[in-house]
Design a protein around this nucleic acid. Structure first.
Lengths: 201, 201
DNA sequence: GCGTTCAGGTGACATTGTCAAGTGAGTGCC
DNA sequence: GGCACTCACTTGACAATGTCACCTGAACGC
């Protein structure tokens, strides 16, 4: 079976989603895939290899989601905004990936001999879009750096709060309420930026 | 030794800080505290008990940091802003606590027989401050809810990005650069909110 | 003096990640 | 055809881990 690797990955992501990263066990994953406890080892080298592969797939998906969203927009701020919504929605719908992607104790993105290019790509997209919006005159009272960091922080923040279920502690969350919340936050920030735009824009 | 409990907690927090949550082992913690492998068990019931205690201390510290900061401010928006800075700086300087506090797979805040009141308190402070700023006329084009969520998301986002070292992947970070970055992001958002204020404010 | 609680220790168990070594099917090559 | 070699696994062992059951003293109430 050539797709054992994918099968193992799917099982691992499902486990992260259901019970958190800690529940991902080499042997449990093998059991779910119906193979011996060493089969995963063969494909991923060691335990962290699995997490790394999950992160890799996650960053690839995230970058694509952001790019797709930005491409369809017809205004630099709108592109940044839509990409932000895509970021948060990717996190929501890929909680298993997202939980692994941003924990450096689990995955070292900057491994000197094998850096995760997918993460670089996603990061690059973010920076490019923020720069575009700033050049177009949005968020004029901020530096490009500040604009970039504020946008990233906000989008990343709402993503983690949702993925970790922190917001669900106060009010029960449904798929659609979460989606609305993302819109509220990202478009809200976008509106603030639009209000702080140069006269030319 | 009556302070063994605290000793164990300190050792655990240090471990989380150094190597992530996964490195926290009941036995390693006991070893560092110089006691038998069952001594921690006696104080915390089980493995998650330790994490829960870490989160409890973390939320208490976070709530206090925010309240202290807000008290010293003389303007509702300034109070919200300063509390936000305090939030992020608490995260930076208590990475061990922070990593545990917001992972629901590790700590169930809403345990039905023993909810974490400290978390409620911290959350309450945040909501109170956001409401205050909104009532004072800041962020008028947003609902109170949107304002609250945007502020929380932004502050929480920059916190997690810093604590997980995500931002350090691009540019090397020092203590002071991180502190500046927090100011940049939180005060930047604050400035956007101030620009979007009612004429009365 | 005696039971009870508190604070911790010993020993055992199944389970985990990892290492070492095997197996068997396929493939290239003479 | 024969043979070395790689690939995709399997089996078996190891130390380490969380947890369970049980033991040990010291302090305390009465």
């Amino acid at each position: 079976m050539a797709d054992l690797r994918q099968k193992i990955l799917d099982a691992s992501v499902a486990l992260v989603e259901e019970q958190g990263v800690r529940a991902v066990s080499f042997r449990e994953v093998a059991r779910r895939a119906g193979v011996s406890h060493q089969a995963p080892y063969h494909h991923f080298g060691n335990y962290r290899g699995i997490l790394r592969a999950i992160a890799q797939g996650g960053f690839a998906g995230l970058a694509q989601a952001m790019n797709d969203a930005a491409e369809r927009a017809d205004d630099p701020l709108e592109a940044l905004t839509d990409a932000g919504v895509a970021y948060a929605n990717f996190a929501r719908t890929h909680a298993g990936h997202f939980r692994v992607m941003f924990q450096r104790a689990l995955v070292d993105i900057r491994d000197r001999e094998d850096p995760l290019e997918e993460a670089e790509a996603a990061h690059g997209t973010l920076i490019r879009l923020a720069q575009g919006a700033h050049e177009a005159g949005f968020g004029t009272q901020l530096t490009v750096d500040a604009l970039t960091h504020i946008c990233w922080a906000t989008v990343h923040g709402i993503s983690t709060l949702l993925v970790e279920g922190v917001l669900a502690e106060k009010t029960p969350m449904s798929e659609s309420i979460e989606a609305e919340l993302v819109q509220q936050v990202v478009r809200g920030l976008s509106a603030l930026l639009r209000k702080d735009s140069a006269p030319s824009a």
